[in-house]
């Protein structure tokens, strides 16, 4: 029972981090209808900036720089590529993002090499004991920060002019333009916000119990894709629920992998994709989505 509770809390915490990534992914899709396969490279870029800068300027300044850096990379991808290519179809742009991803990830992994870079976070490997449950402090912070950011995001999405412009554009871009909404700005904002969220997620994917940022970090980030897709590519609610489902499934499958040995070793890593496949078979548009992936 104790194991179960610990796994559940860990799963929710990791799931909330996946939700941050998936949220950015969904925001880009809503604003531009582009499936952004370069998302993991945004995350890696943010994490890399934090890892490189924290020894000289301290953790918090490095984190701010990482968030700003990833937002800038996102904005640059939008400005230099997505915007120029607006005559091309959305599926062509999705393929272009694969190219961008390969470019960025190759360069960053070359820089990282075989190192495992620490991000210099203040939480270290401290463990909190809540009654019989032991849980890493980093997981508690991750959950709190993710919950805060997600809440702030959803409030902004619902109530600010930026949110109204985003949703109007997502529903009908031509009419949004007729209202004087600047589609270029909406799209640029979406990419920058997605980059910033990805950088925060990078931090929490690389802190304890993970040893740090290495070339494998993108694989961890990839798990946010099934989260976004199973939730529904155009649904912010879907991104949150999808993130949690993936996080909890992964934690449970890994935690009980001895009992699940008949399914094979490393089941925790493939679990997100299994869950996604099962859900898409039942609901092709995802749990909360309105658009099927085949139409992308």
């Amino acid at each position: 029972m104790i194991t179960f509770l610990e796994l559940l809390v860990n799963g929710i915490s990791v799931g909330a981090v996946y939700a941050l990534i998936a949220l950015g992914f969904v925001v880009i899709f809503k604003a531009t209808e582009v499936v952004n396969f370069a998302h993991a490279s945004l995350l890696l870029a943010g994490g890399f900036v934090v890892a490189k800068l924290h020894p000289s300027i301290g953790f918090w300044a490095a984190l701010a720089a990482g968030i700003g850096g990833a937002a800038l990379v996102g904005a640059l991808i939008e400005f230099l590529i997505i915007r120029r290519a607006n005559v091309a179809g959305h599926s062509v742009l999705a393929i272009v993002t694969i190219g961008v991803d390969i470019l960025l990830v190759t360069e960053l992994t070359r820089q990282i090499g075989t190192d495992v870079l620490a991000l210099g976070d203040p939480w270290g490997d401290r463990v909190l004991h809540l009654g019989p449950i032991s849980i890493a402090e980093t997981r508690v912070v991750a959950l709190a920060v993710a919950a805060l950011l997600i809440t702030a995001f959803l409030l902004a999405f619902k109530y600010t002019g930026w949110g109204v412009a985003m949703r109007a554009t997502a529903e009908d871009a031509e009419t949004a333009a007729l209202m004087g909404i600047r589609l270029g700005r909406v799209s640029l904002g979406a990419w920058a916000v997605a980059g910033a969220l990805a950088a925060v997620a990078a931090l929490f994917l690389c802190v304890f119990p993970t040893p740090g940022l290495d070339r494998g970090t993108t694989f961890a980030a990839m798990k946010a894709f099934p989260a976004a897709i199973l939730g529904g590519l155009d649904s912010t609610t879907g991104a949150l629920v999808g993130g949690l489902i993936v996080g909890v499934t992964e934690a449970m499958m890994s935690g009980y992998q001895n009992e699940l040995a008949f399914l094979g070793r490393g089941i925790g890593d493939v679990a997100p994709f299994l869950v996604m496949t099962v859900i898409l078979l039942i609901r092709p548009a995802g749990l909360f989505g309105t658009r099927e992936l085949s139409r992308v």
Partner: peptide, 22 residues
């Protein structure tokens, strides 16, 4: 525009807000 093209997933109030953005 022709065919009204209101933002049907948004509320009436939000549609009016969208109109004021430009």
């Amino acid at each position: 525009p022709e065919g009204r093209r209101i933002f049907s997933r948004m509320t009436v109030e939000e549609n009016l807000r969208a109109g004021a953005l430009g």
